[in-house]
Each structure stands twice: as structure tokens, then as C-alpha cells.
């Protein structure tokens, strides 16, 4: 009984971590591609930022 509950807990933890990591990867990429104002990156992504409704300029 005790063993079973331990397995269940570690099972849900091992699924939660990849979910959090995936969400973090997505958010970091949105930040870099869509919001960092560095010159070259802004110029390259300029049209897309406008078209996607991100704050630009």
C-alpha cells in the first residue's frame, strides 16, 4: 500500500517537470523573438511583431 502511493507521487512529479520545462521554453522563446528590443533582432522580427500584435518600437 505504502509502496503504491510512493509510485503514484513520483509518477505525477516526473510528468509535471517536463510540462513546466516545455512551458518555460515556449515563454522564453516568445520573449526573445517577440519582445527583446536589441537592434538586429528587432529589425529582423519587425514585420512579424507588428502582424502578431506585439508591442513594437
Amino acid at each position: 500500500m505504502n509502496t503504491q502511493s510512493t509510485v503514484a507521487v513520483s509518477g505525477s512529479k516526473s510528468k509535471l517537470l517536463p510540462i513546466i520545462v516545455s512551458a518555460f521554453i515556449g515563454m522564453a522563446a516568445i520573449f526573445v523573438v517577440g519582445h527583446v528590443q536589441a537592434g538586429a533582432l528587432h529589425d529582423a522580427a519587425h514585420d512579424v511583431r507588428h502582424a502578431t500584435g506585439f508591442p513594437c518600437h
Binding site: 512551458a23 521554453i25 515556449g26 522564453a28 522563446a29 516568445i30 523573438v33 529582423a44 522580427a45 514585420d47
Partner: peptide, 26 residues
């Protein structure tokens, strides 16, 4: 460049969306 960055943005959105989908399936 616009095509490349659009693909990057929607791939990033897909990561977040599928993470939420995965969590809901839990």
C-alpha cells in the same frame, strides 16, 4: 525572415499550448 520568425513564434506558442494540454490530461 518574417516566415522564419513566424514559425518560431508559433512553435513557441505550441510548446506552451501543448504543455497546458498535457497538464489537463493529467
Amino acid at each position: 525572415l518574417s516566415i522564419a520568425f513566424t514559425i518560431m513564434i508559433y512553435t513557441a506558442y505550441a510548446f506552451i499550448l501543448i504543455a497546458a494540454i498535457a497538464y489537463s490530461e493529467e
